[in-house]
Computed example of a mutant assay.
Amino acid sequence: METTELKSAFQVDERGYYGTFGGAFIPEMLYPNVEELRRNYLDIIADPAFQREFRDLLTDYVGRPTPLFHARRLSDTYQTTIYLKREDLCHTGAHKVNNTIGQILVAKRLGKQRIVAETGAGQHGVATATVCALMGLECIVYMGKIDMERQKPNVDRMHMLGAKVVPATSGSQTLKDATNEAMRHWINNPVDTHYIIGSVVGPHPYPDMVARFQSVISEEVKKQLLEKTGRSTPDYIIACVGGGSNAAGAFYHYLDEPTVRLVAAEAAGQGLTSGHSAATTALGKPGILHGSRTILMQTEDGQVVEPYSISAGLDYPGIGPLHAHLYSSGRGRFFSITDQEAVEAAFELSRLEGIIPALESSHALACLPKLKAASDEVIVICLSGRGDKDLAAYTAYLDK
């Protein structure tokens, strides 16, 4: 994460907006918490002692830099050059730990004693429980009851790490509802608790703070790609987007590089017209969700539409405000990927390269046949997590 400021039309402005998206739409009781964070986060992050501790932990604990792997057999299949940014090799098995390391260091400098978090696929919950164990802080994770059932290995990991996992039983009992419950907890415990949001969503400054911590992904890609190809800019970067933290990190240092095409994969679930989807840009419109103005799926009278995806991490009715801005401005290209397409892409990578991806990452991989990239072009795919947690879903597909 570079400390120098990027002068970009796609960086957050002083009011917390990306274009017309962002801001902090919060209840009065939450204002002191968010304002304390907003006033302090940039100074904390820029402090040399913070940077040293953050970098040391990324290296010695997380295992960074993660490799940029030339997927030769996958490249041959699509007649182009494909690199995988191996975030699945991070400690805990996904990119989420980059952000939880950063945020828990911020929380400690703010004097917080308890951490609350939300999780969908469980990877952010595991990453939060991990850093709480490392730092000796109490950890409470809210997770949709349905997600707890379909991501049981991650629930077990959180328990082993000492976290309290609380089921969210309202609504669709998935990520949206877990986020609601975590925010309620924070409102009721404003003094001693920090809320580690797991994606580039929520009220300002969360989308910017999370993107800064995840920007280590694109920072490394630039250096690694230069070493491997003689150029630091690929033709395409592909990442999945639910809230969109891995995509924000993969895109961050390329936002003002117009030759780099930013490609986001959303979860179309059982199809755009099925009523069982989470393809926000295809089905949504501007509105307020979890403290920011963004694009979200909603009814004519503004009620949030329940999302669906085979992937618990993409099962969210909105996207982060940065991604809403990338979509509305045309800077990003968004694909809707069905469950079927994602699972097929997962099996393809597994059998061509010996890498079993998370279902979330599989949505990004499923963009490859849609791109029709030229033979002389270079594609970087952010492989955001590993597929251990999704083996039950993959096995069920095999049994069909």
Rank of each mutant, 00 (worst) to 15 (best):
residue 116 V to Y: 09
residue 207 P to L: 07
residue 124 H to L: 04
residue 165 V to I: 03
residue 214 Q to Y: 13
residue 160 M to E: 06
residue 119 T to E: 00
residue 165 V to L: 06
residue 119 T to V: 14
residue 159 H to V: 14
residue 132 C to S: 14
residue 153 P to A: 07
residue 161 L to S: 12
residue 186 W to K: 02
residue 114 R to S: 14
residue 140 I to H: 13
residue 113 Q to K: 15
residue 121 A to F: 13
residue 176 K to N: 14
residue 206 Y to C: 09
residue 188 N to C: 05
residue 116 V to Q: 12
residue 177 D to G: 08
residue 132 C to W: 02
residue 204 H to D: 15
residue 159 H to M: 06
residue 169 T to M: 13
residue 200 V to W: 05
residue 132 C to P: 03
residue 201 V to L: 11
residue 192 D to R: 04
residue 142 Y to R: 04
residue 149 E to P: 00
residue 151 Q to K: 04
residue 175 L to T: 10
residue 119 T to L: 04
residue 170 S to F: 00
residue 211 A to V: 06
residue 170 S to K: 11
residue 134 L to N: 11
residue 132 C to N: 01
residue 197 I to R: 08
residue 124 H to W: 13
residue 140 I to M: 00
residue 130 T to I: 04
residue 189 N to A: 06
residue 181 E to Q: 14
residue 207 P to F: 03
residue 127 A to C: 05
residue 147 D to S: 04
residue 165 V to W: 06
residue 151 Q to G: 11
residue 119 T to Y: 01
residue 210 V to E: 15
residue 190 P to R: 00
residue 108 K to A: 07
residue 188 N to F: 01
residue 215 S to H: 09
residue 151 Q to F: 07
residue 192 D to Y: 06
residue 200 V to P: 11
residue 214 Q to I: 09
residue 201 V to A: 15
residue 184 R to M: 01
residue 142 Y to M: 00
residue 191 V to K: 14
residue 134 L to H: 15
residue 111 G to N: 02
residue 214 Q to W: 05
residue 127 A to L: 07
residue 196 I to W: 00
residue 137 L to W: 08
residue 121 A to Q: 10
residue 117 A to S: 12
residue 180 N to W: 00
residue 169 T to S: 13
residue 150 R to V: 08
residue 162 G to K: 01
residue 169 T to P: 04
residue 183 M to K: 08
residue 164 K to G: 03
residue 197 I to S: 12
residue 114 R to G: 07
residue 144 G to E: 11
residue 150 R to D: 13
residue 124 H to A: 07
residue 213 F to A: 14
residue 164 K to F: 02
residue 162 G to T: 09
residue 136 G to D: 13
residue 139 C to F: 12
residue 211 A to G: 15
residue 127 A to R: 02
residue 115 I to V: 14
residue 167 P to Y: 02
residue 149 E to Q: 14
residue 192 D to V: 03
residue 198 G to I: 05
residue 207 P to G: 04
residue 199 S to N: 14
residue 204 H to P: 11
residue 212 R to I: 12
residue 204 H to Q: 10
residue 185 H to L: 03
residue 184 R to K: 15
residue 210 V to I: 15
residue 155 V to W: 11
residue 122 G to K: 00
residue 162 G to H: 07
residue 160 M to G: 04
residue 113 Q to L: 11
residue 141 V to S: 03
residue 190 P to S: 04
residue 170 S to A: 13
residue 111 G to Y: 04
residue 169 T to N: 12
residue 132 C to E: 12
residue 208 D to T: 14
residue 187 I to C: 05
residue 178 A to Y: 02
residue 108 K to S: 10
residue 206 Y to K: 05
residue 114 R to V: 12
residue 110 L to P: 15
residue 189 N to G: 00
residue 144 G to W: 00
residue 165 V to Q: 09
residue 155 V to Y: 13
residue 126 V to G: 15
residue 183 M to L: 15
residue 147 D to T: 15
residue 121 A to V: 09
residue 160 M to T: 14
residue 168 A to W: 09
residue 179 T to H: 01
residue 129 A to V: 03
residue 192 D to G: 00
residue 120 G to N: 05
residue 209 M to F: 02
residue 161 L to H: 01
